[in-house]
C-alpha cells in the first residue's frame, strides 16, 4: 500500500485530542493505520492515508473524531 497513495490534503478528518480518552479503538478499526496511540491519546500519524471511510468516527466513544466527506 506504501506505493499507492491518493491526493494529499483533501481528507476532512478532524481529531479533537481534548475529547480523546485513549481507548485505542480508532487504531483498531482504521484500515490505513492513520492513528497511533501516543502518551495515552490518539494521534494522527498519517493524515493523507485517510480515505474518509468513517469507521473511526462511528466507533469513537467520546466523539473526538469527525469526518464529513461530500457526496463524492
Amino acid at each position: 500500500m506504501e506505493n499507492l497513495r491518493y491526493i494529499d490534503d483533501v481528507s476532512t478528518l478532524v481529531l479533537d485530542q481534548d475529547k480523546c480518552i485513549g481507548c485505542g479503538l480508532c487504531t483498531e478499526v482504521c484500515p490505513h493505520n492513520v492513528f497511533e496511540l501516543q502518551n495515552g491519546k490518539a494521534e494522527i500519524v498519517d493524515f493523507n492515508a485517510c480515505m474518509e471511510c468513517g469507521a473511526c468516527v462511528n466507533n469513537c466513544p467520546s466523539n473526538a473524531l469527525e469526518v464529513s466527506p461530500g457526496v463524492g
Binding site: 476532512t12 490505513h32 463524492g72
Partner: peptide
C-alpha cells in the same frame, strides 16, 4: 479501490 477518499474523488 480501497484507498481513495470521496473528497479526493470530488476534487
Amino acid at each position: 479501490t480501497p484507498f481513495t477518499s470521496p473528497s479526493g474523488v470530488e476534487k
